[in-house]
Every structure is written in structure tokens, then in C-alpha cells.
Amino acid sequence: MDEQELQRIEANVSLAIDQLGPLSDVTFGLNQESVEWVEGFIERQRSRPDFDPEQVGGLIGVLGSFLGACIAAATGGGWHRSDDDGWGVLLPDGSRAFPFAKVRKQFRDGVEGGESIASFYRIAVDFIATGKLRETREGGAGPHAT
């Protein structure tokens, strides 16, 4: 079952690149610039008059797969499934990022509600995967991710 789910995630990543790349004005791929564009795409979907947060399950799957693949590509991490938390990206420091949950939260609450996949990406790549967040916490000062 895990292998089939992993293949579905990989197919979702390809679908996101194939379908969203031509719509974007960036060099679309597994990079930060594309994550930022997808964040705007989510916000544009949310602003549509016919937007229904209960009807975006397929988009959450595609965009969550894409976000996770971007994080994995930037950090050297990889997909990992646990019985308790489902699919996430296992980062080199042993922590995990859960891109599907973050995409779902941004669809639900939006950037104005504090949910940003671009910020999530930057924190995962620049702080958590590098160990800088742990160093900051152990030093007793600085930002804390929740």
C-alpha cells in the first residue's frame, strides 16, 4: 500500500508541474519560487466566489505532494509514512514536515489567517532541516515554530 501511495504522490507532483507550470510566470519546478507562486494560486482560489473549502480535497493532494517534493528536494529529505501522522517529509535532522496539513490549513484560513505554505517551506528548509531552529531554542532566544 505504501508503494502505491508513494507513486500517487509522485504522479501528483508531475501533475502540478505539468498543469501549473504553464500558468505561472516563474521557472516552475521543485523550488522556492514555485512554492511562492502556488501560495498565490491557493489565495486566488480562495477568493473565487464559488470557492468551497470542503471541495478542495484533490487540490490538497496535488499541492501537498508538490510542496513536500519541493521541501525534500531542497533538504535531501524524503517521503515517510507513519501510522500516527500519515505522510510527511522526513528531514535530515530526523524531524518531519507535513505539507498536506499545511496546504489544507492555507485553503481553510488563508495567508491572512496566518497559514502560508511559503513560510512553511522557508522554515523547513532554512531552519528545521539545518538545525538552526534547534540551536535557537537551545540558546533560549529567537523564533519558535509551532
Score class of each variant (00 low, 15 high):
Gly78Lys: 10
Ala11Met: 11
Gly76His: 07
Glu138Gly: 10
Leu90Phe: 05
Ser65Trp: 03
Ala11Lys: 13
Gly139Cys: 13
Gly64Phe: 01
Gly29Leu: 04
Arg104Glu: 05
Gly58Glu: 10
Asn12Gly: 04
Ser119Ala: 13
Ala16Val: 08
Asp2Tyr: 15
Ala73Thr: 07
Glu43Ala: 09
Ile71Ser: 02
Trp79Gln: 11
Gly114His: 06
Ser47Lys: 14
Pro49Val: 15
Leu15His: 10
Leu133His: 08
Ser47Ile: 09
Ile71Met: 03
Gly40Tyr: 09
Leu15Asp: 06
Phe28Val: 02
Glu36Val: 15
Gly142Ala: 09
Ile42His: 06
Arg8Pro: 03
Gly77Gln: 05
Gln4Asn: 13
Asp84Ala: 14
Gly88Gln: 05
Arg48Tyr: 09
Tyr121Phe: 07
Leu91Ser: 06
Arg134Tyr: 08
His144Gln: 13
Leu30Thr: 04
Gly110Trp: 09
Ile123Pro: 03
Arg48Asp: 09
Ser14Glu: 07
Met1Phe: 15
Asp83Gly: 15
Gly64Thr: 04
Ile71Tyr: 01
Ser95Arg: 14
Leu90Asp: 10
Gly88Pro: 01
Glu135Tyr: 10
Val103Met: 03
Trp87Gly: 05
Asn12Gln: 11
Gly57Leu: 07
Glu43Met: 11
Ser65Phe: 02
Asp83Leu: 12
Gly113Pro: 11
Leu15Gly: 05
Ile17Val: 06
Pro53Ser: 10
Ala97Asp: 08
Ser24Gln: 09
Phe28His: 00
Gly58Gln: 02
Ile17Cys: 00
Glu54His: 11
Ile117Asp: 02
Glu39Cys: 08
Glu112Ser: 14
Gly88Asp: 01
Glu138Tyr: 13
Arg48Ser: 11
Glu36Ala: 15
Pro49Leu: 12
Ser119Ile: 09
Phe41Pro: 02
Ser119Val: 11
Ser119Lys: 10
Gly110Gln: 07
Leu91Ile: 05
Asn31Gly: 08
Ile9Asp: 00
Phe100Arg: 05
Ile60His: 02
Leu59Gly: 11
Gly77Met: 03
Leu6Met: 13
Gly110Arg: 05
Leu91Trp: 03
Ile71Asn: 00
Arg122Ala: 10
Glu5Trp: 15
Arg137Asn: 11
Gly94Pro: 07
Phe41Trp: 15
Ala118Leu: 04
Ser47Arg: 13
Thr130Tyr: 06
Ala16Ile: 01
Leu20His: 01
Gln55Lys: 14
Phe51Glu: 10
Arg134Cys: 12
Arg137Pro: 07
Asp18Leu: 15
Asp25Glu: 13
Ser14Val: 11
Thr27Gly: 14
Leu6Pro: 07
Gly88Phe: 00
Arg122Ser: 12
Lys102Ala: 07
Gly78Asn: 12
Asp85Tyr: 12
Ala74Phe: 06
Lys132Asn: 15
Val56Glu: 06
Ala73Gln: 11
Asp50Ala: 10
Thr75Val: 07
Glu115Asn: 06
Glu39Phe: 00
Leu90Gly: 08
Thr136Ala: 14
Gly78Thr: 12
Val26Asn: 04
Ile17Asp: 00
Glu3Ser: 14
Asp85Thr: 13
Phe51Gln: 12
Tyr121Asn: 02
Leu30Pro: 02
Gly86His: 11
Ala74Thr: 03
Trp87Lys: 14
Leu90Tyr: 05
Pro49His: 12
Ala141Met: 12
Gln32Leu: 14
Gly78Ile: 08
Gly61Phe: 02
Arg104Lys: 13
Gly88Met: 08
Lys102Asp: 06
Ala118Phe: 00
Ile60Thr: 01
Ser14Thr: 10
Gln19Pro: 08
Tyr121Cys: 02
Thr27Met: 14
Glu5His: 14
Gly29Ile: 06
